[in-house]
Simulated scan of single mutants.
Amino acid sequence: MTVKVLIIEDNPVARSFLCRVVRESFSDAMEITEVGDLENARRQVAKLSGGNPEISFKLILVDLELPDGNGMEFLTELAGSPAIKIVTTLYSDDDHLFPALQCGADGYLLKEDRFEVLVEELQRIVRGQPPLSPAIARRLLSHFRPSQSDSGTMPLNSGFGTLSSSHAPFSNSRSVALDPPPEWERLTPRESEVLTYLSKGFTIKEIANLMGIKWFTVNDHIKSIYKKLNVSSRAEAAVLASKQGLV
């Protein structure tokens, strides 16, 4: 099955560069749609999905500064989309980074990074990790270090909680319910199977191989699991899975 990718970038050279990065990053067959502004991005999303999330874009790369608006607007509009949404930008400052994460970005990459670095960071998705440029990862660590020294924990609402990574930091400041939430019964058999593997420490790629499905599909299942169980990390999901005897 071909994976559909949307790249939103107004600079033709940068757009071509990002296409090469995406094709080099994944072994799946890719169908890449390129647009240069928000209007065409919205049109492509509406045209493809037609209200059916099963045939929507699976990966979306969006620049923050576009001719007809800010990429954060688009991230907000895609809040309910199962797509993996990654910001690709030149801005590495807090004023752009944290609002983007709060708007729903699943990753944050700097276009100025070398080709090999961007490929490696995109491949982190398959390993169940958030795609973050090295400079961005360092900035996040630096930002939260004072909080860690004050309380000994890293708050989940710090921005990492919005990422799709199965390794999001787990903080004791957020209590895990002792009893499974009512939504537990709504997990599909497939989601329960994914949760079992996830709780045992398997990566997204390993789960995909075990279940015979695409890693994009596994990521969709994980997002649904987190939403239904009202958790933000693998650790929290594992606690509930353990209580139910799945692991």
Score class of each variant (00 low, 15 high):
164 S>F: 01
141 L>A: 14
130 P>Q: 04
129 Q>W: 02
98 F>P: 00
163 L>C: 13
131 P>G: 06
80 G>E: 12
111 K>N: 06
109 L>T: 02
109 L>N: 13
116 E>F: 08
117 V>G: 11
97 L>P: 02
148 Q>R: 11
126 V>T: 04
147 S>L: 10
96 H>I: 00
92 S>H: 12
85 K>R: 15
139 R>C: 02
159 G>D: 11
132 L>K: 05
106 D>K: 08
105 A>N: 11
145 R>G: 07
147 S>W: 03
90 L>Q: 14
130 P>E: 07
161 G>M: 05
124 R>L: 07
67 P>L: 07
82 P>N: 15
76 T>Q: 15
76 T>E: 15
82 P>H: 15
138 R>W: 02
122 L>A: 06
79 A>L: 05
144 F>N: 10
72 M>S: 12
100 A>N: 08
98 F>D: 09
147 S>Y: 03
112 E>P: 02
74 F>L: 12
78 L>T: 01
161 G>C: 09
69 G>R: 04
132 L>Q: 06
110 L>A: 07
131 P>K: 03
164 S>W: 00
149 S>I: 04
95 D>E: 15
128 G>H: 03
98 F>S: 07
146 P>G: 09
93 D>Y: 10
134 P>M: 02
162 T>H: 10
85 K>P: 09
160 F>P: 03
70 N>M: 11
159 G>T: 01
140 L>C: 10
134 P>W: 01
135 A>R: 15
154 M>G: 14
125 I>K: 02
91 Y>A: 11
78 L>S: 11
107 G>W: 01
151 S>D: 13
125 I>S: 05
88 T>Q: 13
133 S>F: 02
100 A>V: 00
119 V>F: 05
80 G>Q: 12
102 Q>E: 14
155 P>C: 11
157 N>D: 12
103 C>L: 03
118 L>I: 01
149 S>D: 13
158 S>H: 06
108 Y>K: 06
101 L>C: 07
136 I>P: 12
131 P>Q: 05
119 V>S: 08
92 S>L: 01
71 G>K: 04
164 S>K: 06
121 E>W: 01
132 L>F: 13
95 D>Y: 11
142 S>P: 00
148 Q>Y: 11
126 V>K: 13
134 P>K: 08
79 A>W: 05
119 V>Y: 04
164 S>L: 02
88 T>K: 04
73 E>S: 08
106 D>V: 00
167 H>A: 13
92 S>I: 00
69 G>F: 06
147 S>M: 07
138 R>G: 08
80 G>A: 09
69 G>N: 08
165 S>D: 13
119 V>R: 08
91 Y>F: 12
72 M>I: 02
121 E>R: 13
165 S>K: 04
162 T>E: 13
147 S>K: 11
118 L>S: 10
125 I>A: 03
115 F>G: 07
121 E>H: 06
75 L>P: 06
80 G>S: 12
80 G>N: 12
155 P>H: 11
153 T>K: 14
117 V>D: 14
152 G>L: 04
97 L>T: 01
160 F>K: 02
122 L>G: 10
165 S>I: 00
98 F>W: 15
77 E>C: 03
114 R>K: 15
